[in-house]
Design a protein around this nucleic acid. Structure first.
Length: 416
DNA sequence: GACTGAAAGCACTGACAACG
DNA sequence: CGTTGTCAGTGCTTTCAGTC
């Protein structure tokens, strides 16, 4: 239906205003110039139309009042869903600021991605041909002169078919979107409900066990959450953790560690293996590290002596574990299967006595597998004599419990 | 409080594709 | 051609969990 008379265009707008869903397209004249003008508005209300005979083609060239009327009745009406391809372009001529309830098929197509759709590009004509199977899709009139009157038969044919393509493409695109469009409200509710209470770290929980008052002051006012032990060997922790991590990394990658486990399990002595590993680690990692310390902070050398004792002890623990695991694994696989390079982060929700949920998150130091007991073991390194040992045990136990909840398999815990 | 390392957030950029 | 929007990549900042 090609309408040119203002009277009939106005009646058409009024008829269309009662629809719930419309497929729209526009053609613009003088688009090469600085001042492009809207020439046609095409509207389809019936998506089953494959010929475009029921489409309205409104000739609005030099009829700004009618364009304004169309904007008021249709574009700005939130009750009507308007579907465009590349809506931002058409809305430039239809007062973007007022537009309500707009759907853009180009946006949808981009979201799905070209590869998933399997089309060569995302132009409306391409989607119509490759997605809906339209033949003889002609895109030549698109760039033609939409200012001239009368319009050619070809132009009018193209104009009305545009909306037909659009409705079909729209329908096809919706098939790619999983039917969870009702999610909006529920999702907002869930995501908003979750962070209602601030989360605790596992270390926070330990602090709470050590001293509830300190914990409260920390949460309430921030700041000091730890009493500094005034020992002369302070600041051991960071280098120790780095070295411990380095050891695991080297054991996993350096073949010299692997070859220490080549003999059969019965022939291995945990103490000997430990000594060899200590030697290796000393030459590869600790000695160069110590050298740099001597250069930069010579006064810290006694501290590093202390650290080395700690690292030796840790390697002893690990060597013992590796040797027992060797009974259950091939020589080459023992280290890989003992040190598990998995996510060390844990997260869980706990229900409090008053019914609210409390989120707890944390990271522990190492995860190993103990074949003799057939269990994972969360390892935590401690470099100082704790004021309250039970709080430390509780911290590690909490890591293990949370990991068990996540992995659904039993987990032990250890402090080295 | 000071520090660390990893991850997440954010702003910016250039390339690209779409409309008539 | 001019405008618009998305996306991927980059680098800086912030946040988080941890150490003492």
């Amino acid at each position: 239906m090609y309408l040119t008379q203002p009277r009939e265009i106005q009646t058409a707008i009024e008829t269309l205003a009662s629809s719930k869903l419309l497929w729209l397209d526009t053609e613009t004249a003088d688009w090469r110039t600085k001042y492009p003008k809207i020439s046609l508005i095409q509207v389809l209300a019936n998506p089953d139309d494959r010929t475009g005979d029921s489409a309205y083609v409104l000739d609005v060239l030099e009829k700004p009042n009618l364009v304004q009327y169309f904007i008021e009745k249709i574009v700005a009406n939130p009750q009507i869903e308007k579907v465009f391809h590349n809506a931002s372009y058409d809305l430039k001529f239809l007062d973007k600021s007022q537009a309500k309830n707009i759907t853009c098929t180009l946006k949808i197509a981009k979201k799905i991605t070209k590869t998933k759709l399997g089309t060569s590009n995302l132009k409306l004509k391409t989607l119509a041909a490759e997605l809906c199977g339209f033949t003889n899709v002609d895109s030549e009139p698109q760039g033609s002169d939409w200012r001239r009157r009368p319009l050619s038969e070809k132009q009018l044919h193209y104009a009305k078919l545009d909306t037909v393509y659009l409705a079909c493409v729209h329908r096809e695109l919706l098939k790619f979107i999983p039917p969870k469009s009702t999610k909006t409200q529920e999702d907002i509710f869930v995501t908003k409900a979750k962070p209602a209470s601030p989360s605790f770290s596992v270390t926070n929980v330990r602090v709470a066990l050590e001293c509830p008052r300190l914990f409260y002051l920390d949460r309430r006012f921030g700041g000091m959450s730890v009493f500094f032990p005034k020992t002369q060997y302070a600041a051991i922790g960071n280098p120790f953790h780095q070295l411990a991590q380095k050891f695991v990394e080297l054991a996993l990658t350096d073949s010299r560690f692997r070859s220490l486990l080549t003999p059969a399990a019965e022939q291995l002595q945990a103490e000997e293996v430990a000594q060899e590993m200590q030697k290796l680690f000393y030459t590869i990692a600790f000695f160069p590290y110590l050298q740099s310390v001597i250069r930069e902070n010579p006064h810290l050398v006694p501290t590093y002596n202390q650290i080395w004792q700690g690292v030796r002890g840790l390697i002893g623990h690990y060597a013992q574990l590796l040797v027992t695991n060797r009974y259950h694994c091939h020589a080459n696989a023992t280290i890989q299967k003992t040190f598990i390079d998995r996510e060390l982060k844990v997260e869980a929700q706990f229900q409090l006595p008053d019914g609210t949920m409390q989120q707890v998150r944390g990271k522990f130091d190492s995860l190993v597998y103990d074949f003799a007991n057939r269990r994972l073991c969360a390892v935590e390194y401690k470099t100082y004599q704790a004021a309250d040992l039970s709080a430390q045990v509780a911290q590690v136990a909490l890591y293990a419990y949370m990991l068990q909840q996540q992995k659904n398999e039993p987990v032990d815990a250890a402090v080295y």
